[in-house]
Simulated scan of single mutants.
Amino acid sequence: MITDTSSAVNAAADPHTAGSTATHIVRVGPVNPHVAQVLDEEFRALVLPTDPAEQSDFLQEHAEQIRIAVCSGRFGVGTELMRALPSLEAIVNFGVGYDATDARQAAERGIAVSNTPDVLNDCVADTALALYLDTLRRFTASDRFVRAGRWSSGEGFPLTTRASGRTVGILGLGRIGAAIAQRLEALGCTIHYHNRRERPESGFTYHSSVRELAQAVDVLVVAASGGPDSAGLVGEAELAALGPEGHLVNIARGTVVDEPALVSALSNGTIAGAGLDVYAHEPQVPETLLGLDNVVVLPHVGSGTRETRADMAELTLANLRQFLRDGTLITPIG
């Protein structure tokens, strides 16, 4: 971590040092509290208003001078906002996902984009494992069963599904997917996967399509990157291939799974159950899912530990400081 921020601030204030006539940093949407505090106190960053009319006035006044945008995975720099920032050079993203940012336009314009990979791999993989266990063994459902007094009244909780020794498919064998696979192997599971590129060094069984993967496994764990290229990768056909005894776990992005198709599959028994940490229109969760006992719903807490969020904040700020210093990023995407 860089503890002396004076050079970074001076770089932002001096267009000759920065290599641009644009000097401002703008925060887009809410970010981690520590990041927000540093942006305000050390970098005198602007804050993009959320009200459309105020945002229009803000951009009219400041757009030409905005050089760097800092945002989160949920509130990125979308297509229209990016077009409104002609001097934008970098987007510093808090989070591994950046699907709210128009990465394609950024690449076309030469705008550098960073995220915060690796520091959250373990916590997200732990969340996937917890969802996997809970989805198959229905622990939170049994907790509700006890709290409702059903056990004490003499009712027995239904038998569940063995979690160890299953065949598990991982959609997206990147850093997080590999960490999930490591945990599942410790449970004696056999790992299959689908990825944009085959990874023979993994030793796992590769499938050339998501449907083929779903058909071969007991549980499908979604760990693919979000964005337009992965939207709807798991749809009606893939869920049907997973089958009435199959389970789905999603810790990636809600958009990777066709949400209406998933709701239908869970409601009519096309699949047995699901564990979800992400949704298509967060924080909105389909009302139907909330009434189903074969679904575990979490409020997007995959990386939500104090330690991981602190590491993500430090990496976000380190990316910002390095870009101000020499125009490069520590963890650029791509």
Results as ranks from 00 to 15, higher is better:
R162F: 06
R162T: 13
A163L: 05
G165V: 08
G165W: 11
R166E: 01
R166P: 04
T167N: 11
T167H: 13
V168L: 05
G169N: 04
G169D: 09
I170F: 04
I170W: 00
L171M: 14
L171Y: 12
G172K: 02
L173C: 07
L173A: 10
L173N: 03
G174C: 11
G174M: 10
G174W: 08
R175E: 14
R175S: 14
R175N: 15
I176F: 09
G177K: 06
A179I: 06
I180R: 01
I180M: 08
A181S: 13
A181N: 11
A181C: 12
A181H: 08
Q182I: 00
Q182M: 07
Q182T: 14
Q182A: 15
R183T: 09
L184C: 11
E185S: 11
E185T: 14
G188P: 11
G188M: 11
G188Q: 12
G188K: 12
C189F: 04
C189L: 05
T190G: 02
I191M: 08
I191N: 04
I191V: 13
H192G: 06
Y193E: 08
Y193S: 09
Y193W: 11
Y193L: 08
H194T: 12
H194R: 12
R196G: 13
R196D: 02
R197D: 08
R197N: 14
R197E: 09
R197Q: 13
E198L: 01
E198R: 14
R199W: 00
R199M: 04
P200T: 12
P200G: 01
P200V: 08
P200E: 07
P200C: 04
E201D: 14
E201H: 10
G203A: 10
F204H: 15
F204T: 00
T205R: 13
Y206I: 01
Y206S: 10
H207R: 07
S208Q: 14
S208L: 01
S209T: 15
V210T: 15
V210E: 00
E212V: 01
L213Y: 07
L213R: 05
A214H: 05
Q215M: 02
Q215V: 00
A216V: 05
A216M: 06
A216F: 09
A216P: 07
V217G: 05
V219D: 00
V222C: 12
V222I: 13
